[in-house]
Amino acid sequence: MLIPCPLCGARDLREFTPKGAAVTLHRPDVGAGLDAWNDYLHLRDNPAGPTRELWWHGSGCGAWLVVERNTLTHEVSGARLAEEEAGA
């Protein structure tokens, strides 16, 4: 599996570490209430198809990426820097 790092180009899977669903980029407000925080911390979808995940290019440039991947085919359809999405 190759992941197209926006900085490094297509790179081998072994340079990356999966970091879970990309929903963790969208943290609820401090006062959002228990349900929102419970959802954010514990509840995840388990899609059979396209999914958005965080991957860390730790053995490469060190960037965090949002990777679009199909869980049925392992096809990777895109990747962008997580900092762009998080607005950091």
Binding site: C8, R11, D12, S59, G60
Partner: peptide, 19 residues
């Protein structure tokens, strides 16, 4: 290393972090 080291992909002067 898993890098593509062909000159067309990794010409002189290029750098890469990898394993």
């Amino acid at each position: 290393t898993p890098l593509d080291l062909r000159p067309s992909h990794f010409p002189r002067g290029r750098t890469a972090r990898s394993l």
